[in-house]
């Protein structure tokens, strides 16, 4: 019987899922991924996680607790960074250590460390580390190398599929194509164009983001998410400022907001923030300051935590889209940046 390896469906899972999944499947393991976040997992999370962590980290604890008795191994990498200078969140590196120290009854955790910016890692050490992980399950080096190759191909394909290129983006801006699901429209209604900005582990997790994607779809909104944005545009936006935002995952968020504030082609931006997220607190402030200086594209910043009520959030989104529609239709007035906690 093959070993069962569990991957919690939270945080960087949403960034590297195809890579990890393919790798372990090719090695002949049974990969068990925790289900979408549910109320039960949220309750598990809140009772098991340290109370000062951000909401998404708590959810990670919930997913891990869910998997605890169902698997033989847990895969929780200590992910530092995948860029020369920019780093991820320090919590990603500490996750495995915290879990190991808080709960001694967990199954064995596989926790490779990977960090280019501060850990002197590179492509070669990445390969070596992947091999070391593989050697725990099979003695056949050919199998490991093949699994590694297939994993990398899967990851590249996934990224290619996810990220749109500049041409597609400009087509989307001209309302020629859609990059996400088709919005549900009422009669004689034109779809609103909104950029949904936030960490990929927030906007893709329907429970954590209070199902915002579906809500927007029902309100007749055509969205593009920050993870789909072409990287060139983001880098271009961020190099305009003297300070280097060194949080790698925050870059796409701030870059997207700055791009659309400057570009002025869409109707609005919704920024999902997580309470207690370190990078969000600063990047959110920068975004709102720039939006206030150049108030053409309205920016709505929603702060989410484990106590956020769905109804209140829904009202705010509805109010925001209503305002955008009214603004488009008859008279134009300028909306300042809104921040609602």
């Amino acid at each position: 019987m093959p070993h069962k390896i569990g991957i919690p469906k939270a945080l960087i899972y949403y960034k590297f899922a195809p890579m990890w999944k393919t790798f372990f499947e090719e090695l002949g393991l049974e990969v068990i991924i925790s289900p979408e976040t549910t109320k039960k997992i949220r309750e598990l999370a809140i009772s098991s996680a340290p109370d000062e962590d951000c909401y998404t980290t708590k959810l990670y604890f919930g997913h891990t607790m869910y998997l605890k008795n169902k698997v033989d191994f847990l895969f929780i990498p200590r992910f530092g960074s995948k860029h020369k200078t920019n780093i991820g969140c320090p919590k990603f590196i500490g996750l495995a250590d915290v879990l190991r120290s808080m709960y001694s009854d967990l199954p064995e955790i596989i926790m490779p460390h990977f960090n280019i910016a501060k850990g002197r890692d590179n492509k070669v050490t990445f390969f070596i580390k992947a091999c070391l992980v593989g050697l725990r399950f099979t003695k056949n080096p050919v199998k490991i190398i093949q699994a590694f190759r297939k994993a990398m191909i899967a990851y590249k394909q996934y990224k290619k599929q996810l990220i749109v290129d500049i041409e597609t983006l400009s087509k989307w801006e001209q309302s020629e194509i859609m990059v996400n699901d088709f919005p549900i429209l009422k009669k004689d209604e034109k779809p609103l164009k909104i950029a949904l900005v936030g960490h990929s582990y927030v906007i893709n997790d329907s429970y954590c983001s209070l199902d915002i994607r579906n809500k927007l779809r029902e309100l007749g909104v055509d969205i593009i998410t920050s993870e789909q944005m072409p990287r060139e545009l983001i880098e271009e936006q961020l190099t305009k400022h003297e300070a280097n935002l060194y949080f790698d995952f925050e870059r796409e968020i701030l870059g997207t907001i700055l791009y659309f504030i400057e570009n002025k082609v869409i109707d609005g931006i919704i920024h999902l923030m997580i309470f207690g997220c370190g990078p969000d607190s600063l990047a959110g402030e920068v975004a709102s300051r720039f939006s206030r200086r150049n108030p053409v594209v309205p920016l709505l910043q929603l702060v989410i935590d484990d106590l956020t009520a769905e109804t209140g959030m829904k009202t705010r989104i509805e109010a925001f889209t209503d305002m955008l529609r009214r603004r488009n239709s008859s008279f134009a007035f300028q909306l300042p940046a809104l921040r609602i906690t």
Binding site: P50, E52, D53, C89, G94, D97, V98
Partner: peptide, 9 residues
């Protein structure tokens, strides 16, 4: 951020 990790361990 880092000290929350410390505190948990």
């Amino acid at each position: 951020m880092p000290e929350i990790i410390t505190r948990s361990i």
